[in-house]
Simulated scan of single mutants.
Amino acid sequence: MKINPYYEFVKNFFLSYNCSISDQGPYHMTIQLSADMDEELMNRPFYWHYMKKMNRQGEPMQLTFTHTNGSEIEGIYLHAGSPMLQRIYGIAMKKGQSARLYESIKEPVDQKAMNPWLILNALIQYRGKQARDEQLSVGINLIHGTILTNMMDSLWNISFDSQVSDYTFPMTPVISLISGYKRIHNYLDTYIQAADDSWAKDSILQLEKEQHLLQRFFETEDVSKDDFLKEQAQIETRYQPRVTISIVNGGLFYISQQTSQGLLMKTT
């Protein structure tokens, strides 16, 4: 089965905000929302206003998501244009835009210095004949400038705290945050330029085809110039290939030298 790229993101998003999975199968999952997430996501302001006024807890809703469109189980199919996915993106961007965290060290270590890593989670949106979203997590070591990808996956099993652990100290960055941000953005630009652009070529061909048909229709039918221009603009909006990069969130992560070396070894 082809993996839905948005499925794991949505799952991790809800688990990160104290929601739970009440039912899960090979092709679906049902999320029990917390009261706070229901209030954020489900657009029921009057219900929650009434519950608070009556000093009652309220009953958060459940959401079922499916891997594929047309699944036997009724639920929300996650795709690039899904309104629910766009709302989830918006909440993620609002709630977790930045963080400063330190690797949790329980025992004294020989190498006490903590390397600063700037990590940005980016959303790349491809729009044209077809729509596609891609999520990239990119980190740069602010001491020597090494850039790594899939950073959040690499850090998933590492414990972090908001306070510096005993016996350790954070190193002062050699590379500034602004410079680090620009380097990651340049990396993303290079990544997009090197990616397969067949989708853009298909979009341009479809755009030219639609424009040609519109021109012929305009020449043979009684259509006003204003209507022609409006339809032309709509065709360009639908088929003109474009790529946008949005930084969803990010943070400064201080990671021990041992762990940093382990991250670097994974890429070699």
Rank of each mutant, 00 (worst) to 15 (best):
P83A: 08
T64M: 09
N69A: 10
G90R: 14
L63Q: 08
Q62S: 14
S71L: 01
F65K: 10
H67C: 08
E74R: 09
I91E: 07
I73D: 07
I73N: 10
G75H: 01
Y77G: 00
T66P: 06
P83I: 11
Q86H: 11
R87G: 05
L85T: 01
L85R: 07
T68A: 04
P83Y: 09
Y77K: 00
T64C: 15
S71H: 05
I91N: 04
P83V: 11
L63W: 04
I76E: 13
I76T: 15
P83K: 09
T66D: 03
A80W: 04
F65M: 07
E74F: 06
E72Y: 09
P83T: 10
R87K: 15
L78A: 06
S71E: 12
T66S: 03
N69M: 09
H79P: 07
G90M: 12
Y89C: 01
T64K: 05
L63E: 05
G75R: 00
H79K: 08
L78C: 05
I88L: 06
I91D: 05
T64F: 13
E72W: 10
G81I: 00
Y77S: 04
I73Y: 11
Y77F: 14
G90K: 14
S71N: 14
Y89M: 04
T66G: 02
G90L: 12
T68R: 05
Q86K: 14
G90C: 09
R87S: 14
T68G: 02
Q62G: 06
F65D: 07
T68H: 09
T66N: 02
T68L: 06
P83M: 08
T68P: 00
T68W: 07
H67K: 15
L85M: 03
M84G: 09
Q86S: 10
Q62W: 02
A80S: 15
I88Y: 02
E74N: 10
I88S: 02
R87M: 13
T64D: 15
Q86T: 05
Q86G: 03
M84K: 14
L78Y: 04
G70Q: 12
M84W: 14
N69Y: 07
G90Y: 10
L85D: 00
E72H: 11
I91H: 06
G90A: 15
G75A: 00
L85Y: 02
M84Y: 12
S71F: 00
F65W: 11
G75Y: 00
G90N: 14
G75Q: 00
H67I: 07
R87A: 13
S82V: 02
G81H: 04
T66M: 01
N69K: 11
M84Q: 12
Q62C: 07
G81D: 05
M84H: 13
L63P: 07
E74D: 13
E72S: 13
Y77W: 12
H79L: 02
T68E: 13
Q86D: 11
H79Y: 12
L85F: 05
I91K: 03
T64G: 14
H67L: 14
Y89A: 00
G70E: 13
S71T: 01
A80Y: 08
G70K: 15
G90W: 10
H67V: 07
S82G: 03
I91G: 06
H79R: 05
R87T: 12
Q62D: 08
S82P: 03
G70P: 15
G81F: 03
R87F: 09
